[in-house]
Each structure stands twice: as structure tokens, then as C-alpha cells.
Simulated scan of single mutants.
Amino acid sequence: MANQKTAFVSQQLIGPSPAPAGQVGATAWIRKNLIATPKDVLLTIISLAALAYVLPGIVQWLFIDAVWTGSDRTVCLSAAQGGAIADGQVGACWAFVGAKFQQFIFGRYPSAEQWRPMLVMIMFVLLLVPMLMPKAPFKGLNALLLFVVLPVVAFFLLTGGFGLPHVETSSWGGLMVTLILSFFGIAVSLPVGILLALGRRSTMPVIKMLCVIFIEVIRGIPLITVLFMASVMLPLFLPDGWTFDKLLRALVGVSIFSSAYMAEVIRGGLQSIPKGQFEGADSLGLSYVQKMRLIILPQTIKLVIPGIVNTFIGLFKDTSLVSIIGMFDLLGIVTLNLSDSNWATPVTAVTGLIFAGFVYWIFCFGMSRYSHFMEKHLDTGHKH
């Protein structure tokens, strides 16, 4: 009898049914995003018409009529201008970018020693990639190597430790300086911003007042002013005979500025945490540090990931302002090379600025996409 009853019970779970054909794929995406309503259809038609009008000319100038190789300005000039192009429209001068590429990446770092920043970059990528992978093991060791060991090793490699020739930071430039400033600013601003946000919500009046003054003063002045203060006023507080390297002054100024903005982002997340979370942590007998580390801050950071990444993106682009104090990041070194008379053409400046803008876009877009990935990965509110 028992065998007869169990014969009608399936021994395997039935798998989920596939989604309807009309709900997945490119056709479903087009129907949902481009032609869902009459207004969407109209806007799609207008957008496609605008692209059809503008895009061919842009592609023609950027790629088809572009000059890719050459040793001087004549390859990017028409015959009427005394150049090598016999007829047709003069396109982008990518030969200029190719000729100056090493300077755009390393600045005036000696060519024979450029293997050192390249080695630092390789180590940075090898440590950063597993750090960004949620399921990668040994996160603690990875963070220690990335945020503590790597900066020390990079400092001695780039400046001239380990018996290597010394290279002044005044020779550094290009994308290398942009990445150094951004990485240092990001690595410092997040923990300092968390401390400032917690201090602003503190019940101790002195700590709260100091944090409020710091945040409001820094947020009330532009980054250029902060950089000038770090470059000019910071050495005045040092003992006689002491000095700060110009790069270090820029690092301090960028870190101070970004920390103040990061503090407000974190404070907004702290205010969005329900009061019951604090009370629940207190009922468990957790100390203040345990409550923040285990209960409050993980939820806060998950909520404000868009704001954090937005601050990081702004910081990455704002590093171009260090040219005010005589340092040349990517945009600064591109602008500096535009004055080279050997490459002075009507299209050189536009081509160089397009290259710089494209590099900035790649990094900023990458950070934005990773932000979306982390939001989806940490979005556990509706999962069962």
C-alpha cells in the first residue's frame, strides 16, 4: 500500500520554466525601452535621425580621415597649408597622440626608468582585481597589501629606493600622477569621511563641533583654494629646515577636500538607518565600536554606494586642478604639449583633448558600472 502511494510522488523537483520569448532578448528590450508608448516611438525616431545626421561626420573625422602615423606637424596639414595631405578634409591628428603617448602616461619621467611605474601599475592591477571580486578569498591580506604594502613599495620604486636612481617628483606627470592622486584620495577619504560622519553625530560636544567646523569650512571653499593652502600655507607650520614635497602637498589637499564631502555622504546613510537597528544593537549589549562595525556601518555603506562612487568619480576628475600648483596630470601634460610648435596644427588641440577626455571617461564609466554591480550584489532586501 505504501509503495502505491509513493509511486505518485515525484522524486525530483521540477525546474523553473523559461521566461516567455517576448519577455527576454533584444526584441523585448527594444519593445520596453524604445517603443513602449507613442511618445517613446517619437523620441526614438528623433534620436535615430539626429544620430544619422551627426554620427557619420564624427566617424569620418575621427577615424576615416584621421592621420595615424607621422613624425611632425606636416602629416596633419593639407597641401594648401604646407602639409602632406593632398586633398580631402583633414581629420584627427592621432599621430600627435602617438608621438607624445609616453609623456601623456608618465610625464617627464626618464624613459630608461619608465619600467618602474609600469611595474607599480602591474602590481596595482594584480591587487585591485581580486579586491573588487566579492567572492575572492583572503580579503584581509589583499587589503593589507593594496593599501599598506603597495604604497610603501611604490614610493621607493618611483622615487629611487632599493639602489635605483633618484627621480624627482617634479618629473612625474601624466596619467601616472592622476592615478596616484586618485588612489591616495580614495583610500584616505573613505575611512576619514566615516570618522568625520560619526564625529558629527557624536554626543560629545567638542568632537561634534570640531567635525562640523572641518566639514563646513572645507565644503565651503573650492578645491583650488584647498590646493593653494596645502601648497603655500602647509610648509609654514613646519619647523625651520623642513619642507613638503609638492606631490605630497597635493595629496594632502585632495584628501582633505574629498574627506569632507565623503563625510556628508556617509552621514546621509547613517540618518537613513532605522532607529530600531541602533536599539537592537544596544539590546544585544554591543559596545559602540561593535555596534557601528557589525550592524550600522555595513548597512550604511550599502545604502550610499551611489553617493560614494559619485564622490570618487568627482575626485578622479578634479585631480586635473593640480596644474594650478605646477603639477601636470593627464590633462595638464596634454595641454602642455599643445604648445609644441613641432605639432602645431588646427586639429592638434582638439585631438589631444579628445584623447584626454576619452581616458577620463573610461575610468569614470568603469567606476560607475562597478557601482551598479555592487548595488545588485548587495541588494538583499527582497531576497528570501
Rank of each mutant, 00 (worst) to 15 (best):
L248R: 11
K291H: 03
Y288D: 13
D282E: 07
S258M: 03
T243P: 00
F278M: 08
S283T: 08
V289H: 09
V265G: 02
G280A: 13
V254D: 13
S283C: 10
G253K: 11
Y261C: 01
I266C: 05
Q271V: 13
S283E: 05
E264M: 14
F278L: 06
S287D: 10
A281M: 01
L248Q: 12
D245H: 01
G268H: 07
F278Q: 07
M262R: 04
V265E: 08
S272G: 10
L270S: 08
Q277A: 15
E279W: 05
M262I: 06
L251K: 14
S255L: 06
R267W: 06
L251P: 09
S259K: 05
S259R: 14
A260G: 06
E279K: 10
P274E: 05
Q271H: 09
S272L: 10
G268L: 12
G280L: 05
S272W: 02
Q271A: 15
S255Q: 13
L247Y: 09
S283F: 06
T243E: 12
V289F: 05
G269Y: 06
F244W: 12
P274I: 07
R267H: 10
R249V: 12
K291C: 04
A281N: 04
S258L: 04
V254L: 04
I266V: 12
I273M: 04
Q271R: 03
A263K: 04
A260R: 07
G285W: 00
Q271Y: 11
S258A: 15
V254G: 10
K246S: 15
Q277K: 07
I256Q: 15
R267S: 12
G280T: 09
L284W: 06
G269T: 14
Q290D: 09
L247C: 07
A281W: 04
R249F: 04
I256T: 15
G253Y: 05
Y288Q: 15
D282V: 09
I266Y: 00
I273E: 02
A260P: 00
F244D: 11
S258I: 01
S287V: 03
G285N: 00
L286F: 07
M262V: 06
Q277R: 07
Q277T: 11
V252P: 01
S259I: 07
P274N: 05
K275Q: 03
S259H: 14
V289C: 06
Q271N: 15
L248N: 14
F257M: 11
G285L: 00
F278G: 09
G269S: 04
G276T: 13
V289L: 07
I256P: 04
S258R: 11
